[in-house]
Design a protein around this nucleic acid. Structure first.
Lengths: 218, 218
DNA sequence: CGGACTTTTGAGCCACGTCAAGAGAAGTGG
DNA sequence: CCACTTCTCTTGACGTGGCTCAAAAGTCCG
């Protein structure tokens, strides 16, 4: 079923391959698979029998209402696990942001291995904490605070030292933060005008005054 | 440590007592403890070594920023489990909404029992799905849609057939939905004026036109 | 160089927030 | 049981942050 909607490896071997992250612990064992830009990994209503780990690239998980409004629930970056759900069916859609490589594993297989099961459990709880943080941002922060929070967290996750290379478009950021694309764009220019950040091309951002930026995140 | 901040049972026996939910499965085994209105169950920064199940009453879990803004992450109603976290320390505060009885268990004890561990896992994933739904509401719904969604979900969780008895104040609803208390109040009267709901006292709401209300939830 | 797409900028508007006051509701003491 | 206090909820008038609509300026590729 997965095979029908996915494009197969173009850069890596499509055969089964054990995956070893840096610390030597198997976070998720499965096949490595490559996707092109904007491809669907799974869709709402699909059966939720696989879990994924991002090797390179990035993924957005989103829901779209009947009237077309879209909310991005989460972005997943290299090292992140996604696709673990309570329900047997997907409640959201996952799409790649650019050229992306994932490790794909059967959920039941991963859950059967104690070491991997432990990792899945940790992952779910960490994801829950991140989701609660997101609720905080959406519930009570202003546009500037949302953008600042987003940039700072993204830089931390990507390991950037006072700079980020955005893997997503303005529209994606807007739909993640509950804003419009215009507000995202305006807020970024305003942060630049205030001297907090510096834009080099629209995807590369340098933190000119990290402390002031952190202050906006409370 | 718990004993220092809690009030002990006034209605039930404070001694250890096995807990058996309706289906006969032990969802959480521990001591039953009663709380008065507005009491703290745990606070931000406390060690997160216990998990809880609501027997009666209700609990809010919230975070407060330095400037006083408050976000309620979730309400917990009879049957709900709360207090499972990734981190060793609490990232939020839990308080009772009224007279409330909880089952308290050590997390390590519950996790050691396979049946309970399975329940904890299910609970965490269900909670994650609910949190993602909350993100959807905060990210892209209008005030009227947020209130409608909130009321419909609350009625479903409390088992009310087209009516709800609100266990929380207007301020709590506002801080849960990312609105102000005035907007919550105005929106409720507006829903009543439109004939969708009927308020009998400010805590009791009857759904006059359930279909129209459901439409607001998409 | 040309075409499609993304981002930025501008002008005006509106949903929701803010500030303020009044109306209930609930607890307290006499 | 009733005054009194206190807290919560409602309503009104007004302000504003972010949305909408529109167009220009980049940016990316073939």
């Amino acid at each position: 079923m997965l095979a029908q909607t996915h494009s197969y490896a173009r850069s890596g071997p499509p055969a089964a391959a054990p995956d070893q992250p840096r610390d030597g612990q198997p976070s998720l064992i499965g096949i490595t698979r490559s996707f092109g830009r904007g491809q669907e990994v799974f869709g709402e209503g699909d059966s939720a029998d696989h879990v994924y780990r991002v090797v390179s690239g990035a993924v957005r998980v989103q829901r779209v209402l009947a009237d077309g409004r879209r909310q991005i629930e989460e972005f997943y970056l290299p090292g992140d696990v996604f696709g673990v759900e309570f329900s047997a069916l997907r409640r959201a859609t996952a799409e790649t942001l650019g050229e992306t490589t994932l490790v794909v594993a059967r959920r039941t297989t991963a859950a059967a291995d104690p070491a991997q099961a432990e990792r899945l459990w940790d992952h779910a709880l960490r994801e829950l904490a991140r989701c609660h943080d997101h609720v905080l941002t959406l519930g009570l922060r202003s546009a500037a605070e949302r953008i600042a929070t987003f940039l700072v967290e993204l830089a931390a996750r990507l390991g950037g030292d006072d700079e980020v290379e955005l893997p997503m478009s303005r529209q994606d950021i807007a739909d993640y933060l509950g804003l419009t694309i215009e507000t995202v764009s305006r807020t970024l220019t305003q942060l630049q005008t205030r001297g907090l950040i510096r834009l080099n091309g629209c995807r590369h951002i340098r933190f000119a005054r990290p402390a002031a930026l952190a202050e906006l995140c409370e």
